[in-house]
Design a protein around this nucleic acid. Structure first.
Length: 470
DNA sequence: ATGTTC
């Protein structure tokens, strides 16, 4: 497989074999994954999906994943048999990032840091399985699945203004809870308002650098201001929904005469009972994920109010694992496309009609969490990018979890984070080792490549002051 | 990512 460098930040895999479109990899030479890792092969495999249009895209933080690479964008044409694939969304449906800004300077935080971090540590449930801010009866879970963040707001977790700063106003339409199994529901009941584990976290951060003063101002960010970033998703509920629908699609594929290069690319036409069932269940899981971040954001706000007297204001809340049916121009014609973004973030440009009025001038905030102990970024969408208004989603792994555990000394890691002034409230030692920054790409290089490829623009760089780790 | 192999 040959990669043709089209620009310093754009590589092309020519259409060959069963590919229906070319592959386009946005990355620098240094960020390209090793061929042996299989991520580039996954770009090729996705290019063979029925109905795919444009190209099979990959972002600079790409790495090997389930079926699709993490960092993949693929759009299929709904009207001509285009498919939807759960592997193109990922197991953590609507995993994403919520950023809140405090009217507090870095120095104000430093003076009270230990109390605030202890408060957050006590208030934020985390780790596999255990604990949630809000344990729900089944009737209320139903409301969350249909109404997303709007339901917690109605029940006092947050404000109406929060919803204006959430992707989709805090809830996606077309959730179909009849497509969710009992096991998925049962897992959701005990997990609303919980981080989970893996790369999920809550971080207190400081705005270290601003690249676009006007956009930062509109977003509510200022130099040396304190922020809280929350990275989490739909927990066991989303995971179970993915599992259930992958299985259903595996058995349905022969009926549609679909064959795929990898069993993990199980899919069905968007306009089919199986396709619609998955999208309905996926939408419900997305609403659960948004409500999860809404509840956690409110729990963090409560801690800041108690310890400092200041409120946290929502900057934005955005997913990076989702499929959406969107209108896009293809060969000069407006088409309905099912846009899969897996480890990729929507990045709407200035003037886009889906943006709320106060963000329309500068574009949609894009929230990029770095690896533990490293920087995070706030970006914004730009006109003209050719991956259906998408950009990267984070640092991207270079080592598997297993490799990281073998190579990382957790004691040294804790020492290093402390030396950098990052207060750690962890979950498991193994979890910390898996998430060591040495297991990830350099987020600064990822963002530089995404910007260089014309997918987004930098607004601010944030550095960690404290982390509550899943 | 995940009651980390129903």
């Amino acid at each position: 497989m040959d990669l043709i460098a089209e620009t310093p930040y754009r590589f092309r895999i020519e259409q060959h074999g069963s590919m229906r479109v070319p592959g386009i990899v946005f990355a620098s030479e240094a960020l390209l994954p090793e061929k042996s890792e299989g991520a580039l092969e996954q770009v090729v495999n996705v290019a063979g999906l029925p109905g795919i249009v444009g190209a099979s895209y990959a972002m600079p933080d790409m790495h090997w994943g389930y079926g699709f690479a993490i960092g993949a964008v693929a759009a299929t044409d709904v009207a001509t048999g285009g498919v939807v694939s759960p592997g193109g969304v990922g197991f953590d449906i609507s995993c994403g990032v919520r950023l809140l800004a405090a009217d507090l300077d870095r120095d104000d935080f430093e003076r009270r840091a230990d109390r605030i971090m202890d408060g957050l540590s006590a208030a934020i449930p985390r780790g596999a399985g255990k604990g949630a801010v809000w344990e729900l009866p089944d009737s209320e879970l139903q409301r969350v699945l249909l109404e997303g963040s709007r339901y917690p707001v109605e029940r006092g977790y947050g404000t109406q203004r929060d919803l204006d700063r959430c992707e989709d106003g805090g809830a996606v339409d077309d959730a179909d809870t009849s497509q969710i199994g009992q096991r998925a529901r049962a897992r959701g009941l005990a997990q609303l308002g919980s981080l989970g584990s893996g790369n999920h976290f809550l971080e207190v951060q400081a705005v270290e650098q601003i690249y676009d003063q006007r956009a930062a101002e509109v977003f509510g960010l200022r130099q040396d201001g304190v922020c809280v970033m929350i990275h989490c998703g739909s927990r066991g509920l989303g995971h179970q929904i993915c599992t259930d629908h992958v299985r259903a699609m595996e058995s349905a594929m022969p009926r549609y005469g679909i064959s795929v290069a990898d069993r993990q690319l199980a899919c069905a036409p968007v306009d089919s009972p199986e396709g619609r069932a998955y999208l309905g269940a996926m939408a419900a899981a997305a609403n659960f994920a948004r409500a999860n971040r809404q509840v956690l954001g409110t729990a963090a706000s409560d801690v800041f109010r108690k310890e400092t007297g200041v409120e946290l204001e929502l900057v934005y809340d955005i997913s990076h694992n989702l499929a959406k049916v969107e209108s896009h121009a293809v060969d000069g014609e407006t088409r309905q496309l099912c846009v899969h973004r897996k480890g990729a973030t929507r990045a709407l440009p200035p003037g886009h009609p889906e943006l709320p009025p106060d963000l329309r001038e500068v574009g949609q905030p894009v929230l990029i969490p770095g690896s533990m102990g490293t920087a995070s970024y706030v970006l914004t969408g730009v006109p003209g990018g050719d991956a259906f208004f998408s950009t990267c989603h984070g640092a991207g792994r270079t080592q598997s979890r297993h490799q990281a555990v073998r190579s990382v000394d957790v004691k040294e890691l804790r020492k290093e984070l402390t030396r950098q002034g990052v207060r750690v409230r962890g979950s498991s030692a193994r979890g910390l080792a898996e998430e060591a920054p040495t297991a990830y790409k350099d987020v600064d290089a990822v963002v530089e490549a995404a910007e260089g490829a014309g997918l987004c623009r930098k607004v601010a760089r944030l550095v960690p002051l404290g982390v509550v780790k899943g």
